[in-house]
Amino acid sequence: MPVQRWRPSVGGLLWVGVWTFPLLDPLSTVDGTRGGIIAGVGLGVFTLTYVVITTLGFDHREDLRRVADVGFGAVAALGVGLAAAYGEHWLIVMLFVGTCGAAVYAGYERVTVALVVLASVLAATVLLGLLHNALSTALITVIGTVLASGLVGAVRQMQRLIRELQRTRDALATAAVAEERLRFSRDLHDLLGHTLSVIVVKAEVVRRIAERDPAAAAAQAADIEDIGRRALVEIREAVTGYRESGLTAELTRAKGVLSSAGITATVQRTADPLPEAADQLLAWVLREATTNVVRHSGAQRCDIEISTVDGAAALSVVDNGGTASGAAFGNGLRGLTERLGAVGGTLQAGTRDGGGFAVVARLPL
């Protein structure tokens, strides 16, 4: 995979650069001699390398980890070299070696490396303090290095958590969109599947009776117009999220649809008024089951029963048609099975031993 070009932000470089002000102390010892010029150049190269590599560490660029490793090696070598060569005031550069190591290695997967680097920096600082007879300065630098490196490590961990939260939020948003699309497709299928099936049935009736009974054909055509208009209203309400379809209204509609298809419908309802959510969900089940009876069963009779048993509402739609209705367990019933399952309900559909097809939904109240 090609490595993307790294372009550090100006803000990031400035933020890291601002915290290099303690390096003004060794800079104050630089004079115009040859040795002073070399020390000044070395300090400038150290500072520039430190700012760039530390900023890279904060950017979490895993594809540039090798660059970060090499860059930190350069920072460490320059820091140790300057502190060893120029004495007490230069021990402060070891603090920046430690914070650079924390920025590069304090990630979740490299904490051990960061601890090893920090321990090495602290040990080197103490040894350099002994070399220059500046142990007290070395100990102060050690304390500062521990505190600064801990702060940098905490900031890096916070950045990692923020990035993970952002990825999680994006994943949840994607999942929510997919779930909403699935819900909308179910609603649209239930609405259009039922409505178009009814329109087809009534259109067939109109075609059969148009010549011998024009008045009845006109009445059926008027029903088709009414169904179409009602479907348009329902689709608009479904799109805006305000669709409410009650079970009582759906029962009336189911009997009319079955009757128009030449199917004798019987309805038995012993259930008390149901909670709104259960009422609407069972209305969807009744609509889908009735549509399947009309489209697939070839039945002459359909029995609908609504009851409450052991704290659960039960809806059964049973026809005496052929096995063709068994093929109806498609997107509609599958979607309703998922909806009922989400609230602890069940949906069973299949052929009966004595012939016909049954759909039974149970929903805890």
Rank of each mutant, 00 (worst) to 15 (best):
P8G: 00
P8E: 06
G12C: 06
L14A: 07
G17S: 09
W19F: 12
L23D: 05
D25W: 12
L27H: 02
G32V: 09
T33C: 06
T33W: 02
I37S: 09
T47Q: 07
T55Q: 10
T55A: 11
L56Y: 07
L64K: 08
R65W: 13
R66L: 15
R66Y: 08
G73R: 06
V75H: 01
L91Q: 07
M94S: 06
M94L: 15
G98W: 09
A106I: 09
Y108M: 12
T112K: 15
L115P: 05
T125Y: 01
V126I: 15
V142G: 04
G144I: 01
G150M: 06
A154K: 05
V155I: 11
R160N: 11
R167T: 11
L182F: 13
R186A: 14
H194M: 09
L196S: 11
S197A: 14
V200F: 06
A210H: 08
P214Y: 03
A215I: 10
A216D: 05
A217K: 08
A221L: 15
D223S: 13
E225A: 14
D226C: 09
I227Q: 02
I227R: 07
R229G: 14
R229F: 14
A231C: 13
A238F: 05
T240I: 10
T240P: 02
L247Y: 07
E250F: 03
T252P: 04
V257Q: 11
L258R: 05
T266M: 08
A271Q: 00
P275Q: 10
Q280R: 14
R287M: 08
E288K: 00
R295C: 01
R295P: 02
H296F: 14
S297Q: 03
G298Y: 01
C302F: 01
G322E: 09
G330V: 09
G332R: 02
R334C: 03
L340Y: 01
T351F: 02
D353E: 14
G354S: 08
G356Y: 02
A358Y: 05
L365G: 04
